[in-house]
Design a protein around this nucleic acid. Structure first.
Lengths: 230, 230
DNA sequence: CATATCAAGATGATCGATTATTTGTTGACA
DNA sequence: TGTCAACAAATAATCGATCATCTTGATATG
């Protein structure tokens, strides 16, 4: 017997596998902003036909991580200073709503979930053993989980999903900064403080700390973007 | 000479043409929520190969208007009462931010743009001559243009884009209601009032009116959704 | 020297056949 | 009856060839 009957073996499709790979490559900066995404080239690298690649690229494009122009193909979304500022602004606005409503509506289970995810974040080293810091690295996964859990009790899947996309878009900027050698001293305390404010049910403080957290990161990244700008 | 050198003839691709068609069909309710989107069937109806269809469906899926499961194909996104409420909530939150910031930052050009788009909305009959009320009908285009112009001066492309997606998602619910025979008596005055509040630079009033506007529509649609729910 | 024309060549888009996976059906067996 | 394996049909995903469009650069022209 090869498998439990109760377990559904998920056969992932080539298109989504490649989608995930490309996505990670864009998020961790190994695919440079503005770089051409040549379908044939990619298909050879992944040893696949053209169709799955195109599907993956179409998804990335509608998601915002790539750009597409009819008859001119795909390109990794460019980055820019205005882009960073817009992104940061949007993150502040939306996460503020999210955390305020979560503090208002969140139950004990929510409290536990943010506590646990913050704990995990504290315990996870920034750089994994193999030195990887890509979007699939443990720290990044846990980091995102913490931020998403903060707003997860707001009651609006739409808001949560939007914040998730914003987080990813920001992740790209963070990676670029890291590649350029710039990185936070230690955001650990900031996360802790946000957690505390949330557990204390202090919406104003939590929102303020969260906003500062985003803006501080942006300020740091900012110094790098000018040089990369495409 | 076939064309002006200064004019770029836009050669649209089959994939995007079909994307637009399917999109409109979903938004105006001619594709029922939950309905299966059979690739081959669609490809015959449009007299095209499979690839453009798949590309179009992939875009729709990442955009949220369709749903996709690996090896199980595409489906028109279902509707639900919780979905409608979530959507309405998100629209209220985001548009509130948008209009407040626009009132704060908008210049004379913004004032003129909202004035003009409201005027156009007033002058456009709900049902066009051919009786069409689809998302490509004049009224719907003008209606969306008005709502988008209200928040267009907020300074955040991200927010504007998000609101655009939310608007479309809501459009779908409106269409379903209309198909079920339910429709607003006359939202014209509400639009007028919002415009006035915005021009008066009264953020609280504008935000309140906008929120009410959304919620009133939702309340109306609500009665219908239970029966359609998939 | 600047610009226009045009022909490869490169790249993007599409097609229809092929392969993989899921779904539906049948019949053996407890 | 109800369960389950085996098979058949339907549907999804993928491939690689082909067609369409764009880009490049060599040549001609004012």
């Amino acid at each position: 017997m090869q498998e439990q009957h109760t377990v559904r073996v998920v056969k992932t499709t080539r298109a989504t596998a490649i989608y995930i790979d490309l996505r990670d490559a864009i998020l961790d900066g190994s695919l440079t902003p503005g770089a051409k995404l040549n379908v044939r080239e990619i298909s050879e690298r992944f040893d696949t036909g053209l169709s799955p690649i195109r599907e993956a690229l179409n998804r990335l494009a509608t998601e915002g991580l790539a750009r597409h122009t009819d008859n001119r193909g795909f390109v990794v979304s460019p980055v820019s200073l205005p882009g960073l500022m817009d992104l940061t602004q949007a993150r502040c606005w939306m996460n503020e709503i999210g955390i305020r409503r979560s503090i208002e509506l969140g139950d004990a289970a929510w409290e536990e979930s943010i506590l646990v995810s913050c704990h995990r974040l504290t315990r996870t080293p920034r750089t994994s053993s193999n030195g990887s810091v890509g979007p699939d690295s443990t720290w990044n996964v846990v980091h995102k989980a913490f931020h998403q859990s903060l707003i997860s009790a707001c009651g609006s899947p739409w808001l949560v999903e939007t914040c998730s996309q914003l987080f990813d878009a920001a992740e790209r900027y963070r990676s670029l900064a890291r590649l350029a050698g710039v990185s936070r001293s230690d955001p650990r305390d900031e996360h802790q403080d946000i957690l505390t404010a949330a557990l204390d049910r202090d919406p104003d403080k939590a929102a303020a700390l969260l906003t500062e957290h985003f803006q501080r990161t942006a300020a740091l990244v900012r110094t790098v973007v000018g040089e990369i700008e495409t």
